[in-house]
């Protein structure tokens, strides 16, 4: 375990299945407060499901999930004050920005969260203006989201979550399907999160960025945690990476001879929830 701060999320023996198809199978994990955590795993390893449980969108079918020292259950989030406080403290950026950008304009999108919090209008406008400025979106504020590029949509999605200044930020494949410049901007943002006190949990199988964006790596396979530790130690464990389907050997022909001794790390691709 890296870091000594008290956990912001704790999960013990968590199970979750989609219509009988298991997604999490006895997952136990503690996320330290203020850490940048990378959730690594191949497609279907349970990363997206875990993020949705941490965001209180899905609920454990067995086992326990706690956030900020309180049990995270459907019943607990039925209470309006509890729900608003929780939504204020935890933000999730979805993998597909098109499902997250449902408002008619960028301004409305960024203002949606603050308005649901019931904050005074002046405060909403101040926060929205600040978020738009921070993500370079001020000139796009009256544009409909469907007219934006993929990178711009991702920035709007991020701004629409960060405008609430959540203590814990969850990101599902943040660099998926982005062009190199937009992906680089996203990585820069995650690098800047270091030392801010915010807990950042990034689900990814883009291993090229892990060393930059994480203080702690959690490797998942088949719905449970198989390893966790410092990025360098995890990434250098070739057997672990191969076993978790994050690296593989690949055939090459050198000087007419076939080799398959090279390890290859997976790069960024689309990943459905699971």
């Amino acid at each position: 375990m890296v870091g000594f701060a008290p956990p912001v999320f704790q999960m013990a023996d968590v199970h979750y299945a989609y219509h009988g198809i298991p997604a999490l199978t006895g997952l136990t994990l503690a996320i330290p407060r203020g850490q940048r955590v990378a959730l690594l795993g191949a497609n279907g390893s349970g990363k997206s499901t875990l993020l949705r449980l941490l965001d209180g969108l899905y609920f454990a079918q067995s086992g326990r999930v706690a956030a900020f020292g309180q049990m995270l259950t459907e019943a607990a989030l039925q209470d309006e004050d509890t729900a608003i406080a929780f939504r204020r403290r935890v933000g999730l950026v979805f993998q597909n920005p098109d499902v997250q950008l449902f408002n008619p304009t960028v301004l409305d999108e960024v203002a949606f969260g603050p308005l649901q919090m019931g904050w005074p209008r002046d405060e909403v406008m101040t926060r929205v203006a600040r978020a738009l400025e921070e993500f370079g979106l001020t000139a796009l504020k009256d544009r409909p989201p469907h007219r934006l590029s993929g990178g711009e949509k991702k920035r709007v999605a991020l701004a629409s979550v960060l405008v609430l200044e959540p203590e814990a930020l969850l990101l599902d494949e943040p660099t998926a399907a982005l062009d190199p410049k937009s992906a680089s901007d996203m990585v820069d943002f995650l690098i800047r999160c270091q030392g801010t006190g915010r807990t950042v949990i990034t689900a990814t199988h883009d291993l090229d960025i892990v060393a930059d964006i994480a203080d702690l790596c959690v490797v998942m396979k088949a719905g449970r945690v198989v390893a966790q530790g410092a990025p360098r130690a995890i990434l250098n464990d070739a057997a672990l990476m191969t076993d978790a389907h994050l690296a593989h050997t690949h055939l090459h022909i050198h000087h007419g001879h076939m080799h398959h001794s090279h390890h290859h790390l997976h790069s960024d691709t689309e990943d459905p929830p699971g």
């Binding site: 965001d55 309006e80 939504r87 979805f94 449902f102 979550v161």
Partner: peptide, 21 residues
């Protein structure tokens, strides 16, 4: 997509009564 959009709305505090600018 409709299910995902609903989750995205809940995630940002929607509780059945949207508030607009």
């Amino acid at each position: 997509t409709g299910n995902e959009v609903h989750l995205a709305m809940i995630s940002r505090g929607y509780r059945g009564e949207p508030r607009l600018m």
